[in-house]
Design a protein around this nucleic acid. Structure first.
Length: 193
DNA sequence: AGCACGATGCTCT
DNA sequence: GAGCATCGTGCTT
């Protein structure tokens, strides 16, 4: 079999965040760490959409932290939270509109042994778990996910049929008011394909 | 299997 | 100074 590596292009991300989040399911998140190729299939993602969305970091306008979300689609927005965790987003939508897709879970593939060691044998089904597993931190904030130079990118993968996708409200928005708290903007691969 | 809580420090008001 | 797009542990059903 001839396998062609296809890095998802910037146009992939220059679309509505809900579409980007849905279509990132099944894609392959790739990280080069210590000259090793690590990867996992994305199994969960959430959309954060503009300053109207009170769950989105951009709801209070542009700040130093969220500035990357206002920039070019297809770039990494990596933020620090809860005093110890990094979370990875892919910037979506046209430049100037603040939106991003939070990568919440992966299923390890390449380098699975290394990934499990980095996780002390624990799972990679959480946004801060997968960044720890792949060595993703604030030094990668703002890098392009559309080329390999930074050692972090996303490749096209198997497409996931609708029957295998569960949609629900986003996680962790405890103090966010309705309707934003309950918007069904979370996409999960709910069964093997 | 589910809930409660503490860890821990950056970011913005 | 408050709040946080979380995680792991420890305790309860």
């Amino acid at each position: 079999m001839n396998s062609v590596v296809e890095i998802l292009p910037q146009e992939f991300y220059n679309r509505p965040p809900l579409t980007v989040a849905r279509d990132l399911l099944g894609a392959r998140l790739v990280r080069i760490l210590d000259n090793q190729r690590l990867s996992g299939i994305i199994t969960e993602a959430e959309a954060y959409i503009g300053k109207e969305d009170l769950g989105c970091h951009a709801h209070s306008g542009k700040t130093k932290r969220n500035a990357v979300m206002y920039g070019l689609p297809g770039h990494a927005y990596v933020y620090f939270t809860y005093g110890m965790h990094w979370c990875l987003n892919a910037v979506a939508e046209v430049e100037g509109f603040p939106a991003a897709v939070l990568i919440r879970a992966i299923r390890p593939e390449e380098g699975a042994a290394i990934i499990h060691t980095r996780r002390n044998g624990r799972d990679t089904n959480g946004p801060a778990k997968l960044t720890q597993a792949l060595g993703i931190d604030g030094t990668l904030n703002g890098v392009s996910l559309c080329d390999p130079v930074a050692g972090l990118w996303i490749e096209a993968g198997a497409s996931i049929p609708d029957e295998a996708v569960t949609i629900g409200p986003r996680m962790g928005l405890y103090t966010v008011p309705e309707p934003w708290k309950s918007k069904p903007w979370r996409f999960i691969v709910s069964r093997d394909t």
